[in-house]
C-alpha cells in the first residue's frame, strides 16, 4: 500500500490541477492548476525511477547500495525546464490580458466574436 501512495498522490495532483483549470475562473489560479498537473506528472516520472532505499544517481564512485534510475530524473529535469518556460510565457500573457481587459476573470475576456 505504501508503495502505491505516490501514484495516488499523482492522480490526486492531476485531478486537482484539472479541477482548477476547469472550474476556477481566475487566470492565475488556472495557471496554478496547470503547474499542479505538471508537478503531478513530474512526481510520476520520479516515482517510476525510484527504488526502495536507493541513492541519487549522481555519484561517479558510488558509496554503495542501489541507485535510482537516472533516466526519469533526466526527463524530469527537462520537463521542469520546459515547465518554467511555459509558466513564464503564460504569466507574461496574463499580464497583457490584464492590461487590456482590467480583469483576470476568464469569463469576461472570452466571447467568440469581436
Amino acid at each position: 500500500m505504501i508503495f502505491n501512495f505516490p501514484f495516488i498522490a499523482v492522480a490526486a495532483l492531476i485531478i486537482v490541477g484539472l479541477y482548477a483549470v476547469v472550474f476556477r475562473k481566475n487566470l492565475i489560479k488556472m495557471i496554478i492548476g496547470i503547474t499542479i498537473i505538471e508537478s503531478g506528472v513530474n512526481l510520476f516520472l520520479i516515482t517510476l525511477g525510484y527504488r526502495e532505499g536507493s541513492i541519487a544517481p549522481i555519484y561517479t564512485s558510488s558509496p554503495g547500495g542501489i541507485m535510482s534510475l537516472p533516466v526519469p530524473q533526466a526527463l524530469t529535469l527537462t520537463s521542469i525546464v520546459i515547465g518554467v518556460a511555459v509558466l513564464a510565457l503564460m504569466l507574461s500573457l496574463v499580464i497583457h490580458i490584464y492590461r487590456h481587459y482590467n480583469t483576470l476573470d476568464v469569463r469576461k475576456i472570452g466571447g467568440d466574436e469581436e
Binding site: 492531476i14 483549470v21 487566470l27 488556472m30 496547470i34 498537473i37 505538471e38 506528472v41 510520476f44 516520472l45 517510476l48 526519469p72 526527463l75 520537463s79 511555459v86 510565457l89 503564460m90 500573457l93 496574463v94 497583457h96 490580458i97 487590456h100 481587459y101 475576456i109 472570452g110 469581436e114
Partner: peptide, 26 residues
C-alpha cells in the same frame, strides 16, 4: 487584446495536451 487572449488559450491547451503526452510517455 484578442490576440493575447488567443495566445493564452493556445498555450493553456498546448500545455495541458503536452503534459498528458508526457504522462503517457511515463
Amino acid at each position: 487584446g484578442k490576440s493575447v487572449e488567443a495566445g493564452f488559450k493556445y498555450i493553456v491547451i498546448s500545455t495541458i495536451g503536452a503534459l498528458f503526452v508526457l504522462f503517457s510517455i511515463a
